[in-house]
Design a protein around this nucleic acid. Structure first.
Lengths: 212, 212, 212, 212
DNA sequence: GATGAATGAGCCTTCATTCAT
DNA sequence: TATGAATGAAGGCTCATTCAT
């Protein structure tokens, strides 16, 4: 008595997540405007009317993608880091690694692209992303830097701007995963990438002892 | 007999550039799909049929924007840097500053957003951007790093990945200029931003003398 | 074992009537096309699939509304009038009053609107209405007029057309109850309305004694 | 050089009126909801996008039909009657005849049906119709009755309600022209109809001299 | 070259209807 | 009998593109 006829399968619980997952994939690949509702439906294994059973419009699907799929990832990051013991440099390494694992290596790596591409057309979505994802993330990084500076481990920096310099490589790596644009000569090797990022951020380019 | 009097006889040469400039502004603000041909025309001061006199389709306008408007900027960068005399650190500073002035502070700051957002829908455009803009830019940076390493000024680094780490902050700054997303608490102060970027990239976070 | 406990076992007999009553209310308020099956179901206290247990389509519900709800009203009129004793003028008054009470003051006052609005899209329904409601009603009025003429109480009139002149005010009153259109400066006062109608129809506008 | 190819004919001036005329015909025949934009377009000899060059939505077409096609008819009536010399009974006859000629015998005879059928779904349209057509028409009739009463030609009546009784037959005749519903046994003969209406309204049903 | 009315394919969304439960 | 998730055809509307002027 397996549902031979998949067409009328009733899967009320699973459908919304399947639709959101399909939508995320397509939004990421083609952008919001170029993604057809019919394609989302097909990718989710339903027909074109079904998404409207669960979401009132394409834009609502977009919002739900952010809220339901992306925001939970931040909590994961937060949990992993909140109890960290060790040097600030080690904490930074742990943070970048966790971030990459939680986002960079999952389909959520596509969210930055999506927000950059479509945010200005959907201010509500951009606001959710900014306030519930970017700001909390920045806050975590700010604490980390302040912790390092307070302990004397880190130099005194222009923290506001340093945050961006530190975030930028990992965000760019995510963006490149989802464009045809690539700064790297080959496939991204995450370990090399994070090692190099940390090496540069912690020690800088200069070979000689610093003088300034 | 004055051709000036005939409204449609004037400036046959200037039209394409006006259309491309209008298109760039709108693509940047709203994305490719959300930009209507009629809006491009209006912004260029012509009517909706005129763009088709010069370009065969919306996509061709996109390509032309990249080729006609973006690529020349790279040449500017290249010229400025090719004859540089001085330390590699100073060269890096000059490069970031030139890059920011040529792109970050102009409307071309929007190109990265546009390419990230729409590149996968327009592989031809992405290819042009990759091969004629990104790759040459990376090559310049690679030379800079190799020059610094060869002279002993820079440490031995994983150059391929270091390139991305160095580019990322400035590209991210451009992206943020054109989204509602912002990692910075206030308006970007270019001087502070470039100083912090260079400080971090050259000296690293760590307070203690390096040992390796 | 109490069938009351099973929510879907209760009142198999009452369902169709509840659905038709709900449908009538909604058809009247919004028209046939603008009434959604789901709304009919909800108004009838069932879910969207239930109407299809009893009716094969929305149009069949429409037909049933006419047959089940409207036609019985005519019988009521007929019964009340068939045994009337008195002058023809009194009979006309009784007829208009009965008609208004049976239809004008009930929700059936909406049927004329519905038939005028949707009749041409549903010829079958229009035919039922015409043959089983309008024609019998006209016949009653024709008998009344013939009775009055035969007795010398009424003048000799073009009966076919007089029927319509006599019907028109009361039908219009029903139509106005269900539109945003209103010829009256205030709410309809049924007594004033029927008195004026009868006064005009019986005595005419002219002040002087008739001569013909 | 006649436009052999009708498809690209540019007829900016005529198009809107053609579209409205086509829309009126179809709205009348099928109702607003059942009329497809594509059908309006086809009936107007254009393709489905053209109506949107001139009207922003289907509802705007509806409004324009009322404003552009219906309201001018009222002016026609008004002009014909404003200079009338003669008895009030003759004026009433002239008014009904003019009304029937201007509306009843034209396609505008369909407007009452349309307003009754769709008015409640489009309050804005209903308001225009009520305020700019029904009210002015009623006002004209009120003046006529007051004129007749003041001169002693008409009896003292409940004017508000008499207006409706007088209007009703002619409005009903228009409604019947556009439904499958008919109170008359044969095709409407306008002359017989207006004669009977006037005869009844002026003299009443009763054969005996009035006493009151 | 320039115009802008006209085109028509395509997409989001609705909703009457179906059917597994 | 009743449910309500799922279906899919259809319609309003958009907009890139065309072409007579």
């Amino acid at each position: 008595m397996q549902p031979e006829n998949k067409r009328w399968a009733r899967r009320k619980e699973a459908r919304p997540q399947e639709i959101l997952a399909a939508a995320l994939k397509l939004f990421v690949k083609k952008g919001f405007a170029a993604t057809k509702m019919a394609d989302i439906a097909k990718a989710a294994g339903v027909t074109c009317g079904t998404p409207y059973v669960y979401f009132s419009s394409k834009e609502e699907i977009f919002k739900a993608v952010v809220r339901e799929l992306l925001l939970p990832q931040l909590a994961r990051c937060h949990d992993l880091l909140s109890n960290f013991q060790g040097s600030s440099a080690e904490l930074l390494r742990a943070m970048l690694q966790t971030w990459w694992q939680a986002m960079g290596e999952s389909e959520f790596s596509a969210m930055p692209k999506l927000m950059i591409a479509e945010g200005s057309n959907f201010p509500e979505v951009a606001k959710i992303y900014q306030e519930e994802f970017v700001n909390p993330g920045n806050k975590m990084l700010r604490h980390l830097l302040q912790r390092g500076i307070a302990s004397g481990e880190f130099r005194l920096l222009d923290i506001d701007y340093a945050i961006e310099v530190i975030c930028a490589p990992i965000v760019m790596a995510m963006l490149m995963k989802h464009s045809l644009i690539n700064c790297l000569p080959d496939e991204l090797d995450p370990e090399r990438f994070i090692n190099t990022t940390l090496d540069l951020l912690l020690n800088g380019l200069l070979a000689s002892p610093k003088d300034h």
